[in-house]
Amino acid sequence: MYKEHWDLKKMPFENTPDTEFFFGSEKHEEAFSRLSYVVEEKKSCAALTGAYGTGKTLVLKALEREFKKKGYVFSFVNNPRLDDLGLLKMILHNFTGSGVPARKEDVLMGIEKFLRDTFQDGKHVVVAIDEAQLIDDASVFEELRLLLNYQTETRCLMTLLLAGQPELNAKLDANKQFSQRIVLSYNLVPLDFEETKKYMDYRLKVAGLKEDIFDAKALDTVFKRSGGIPRWINNIANMSMLTAFSKGEKSISEAIVTEAIESSKQ
């Protein structure tokens, strides 16, 4: 709606995992680096945790984009609230893009065949599961652990990446056999004030903006009201730009940010 007002090429604060907007804060770069190590070295499993909206999905998507360029094969599961068979079917479907067998043993044989065929092609398989804290059935973790048993004499045939909110940690700790397979873990925390400013500036520049439009007090208000959580930063910044557009303003003040926040509550 306000793209033309600032002559933007893209909306800057959409809450979608658009990897063009991946901002490499120190925290996000560390998360990306750790997961990259696990994938590149073909290790078994890594876990990424963080509060709602801290950018876990975007880290996974940035990783997928980077490693697909190198020939890695991904199965990305967005909603793991499934039973063990349902999740196995979803993983296989993402690999093959076609119908999957009904029986569990056939699904497992299909996954094993895909893993070994991919290995023979000189490639590596990655299964990324987002919102992993939604997995309630212990048997699902057990099936995932057993998938990690597919190995050659020298390495795993599959790398598993789990991302979820902090309650995922308790579920992993409760499953000792599974937690022993986790090579690295990282907890993604909110941005600090300086990172919040750089985050907003980066997204605005990617969207095509050439000048600063949020004044110092407006930036301070965005940070305080968002707590440095990217999803909330996006919501507040987006509503602030919409409010400024409706007033015919090109600069965004503290008053506009506050009005935008209050109007979003109504």
Rank of each mutant, 00 (worst) to 15 (best):
Q133W: 03
S251P: 15
F76I: 09
D212M: 10
Q266W: 06
E105R: 15
F23T: 05
K3N: 14
D117K: 06
L162M: 06
N238C: 11
N149F: 09
Q120P: 09
T16D: 06
A47N: 10
A46M: 08
E64W: 01
K61S: 13
K265A: 13
V59A: 03
E211L: 13
K224R: 13
Y186D: 07
R34I: 08
V107C: 01
T16A: 14
F95L: 00
L147G: 00
S264D: 09
A128I: 01
L148Q: 04
A62E: 10
L168M: 02
P12M: 05
K247M: 14
F193H: 12
F22E: 01
T152C: 07
H28S: 06
K27Y: 05
D137Q: 07
T19D: 10
F141W: 11
F95K: 00
D215H: 05
L146W: 06
R116Q: 08
S263C: 13
M158L: 14
A170P: 15
H93W: 09
G164T: 11
S98E: 14
L184H: 11
L88C: 03
K43C: 11
H5V: 04
G24C: 12
F114R: 05
T57L: 08
D106V: 14
E40L: 13
I135N: 00
G97P: 02
M90N: 11
A207R: 01
R155F: 10
L8K: 13
P166H: 02
M1S: 13
E105F: 12
I233W: 08
F13A: 02
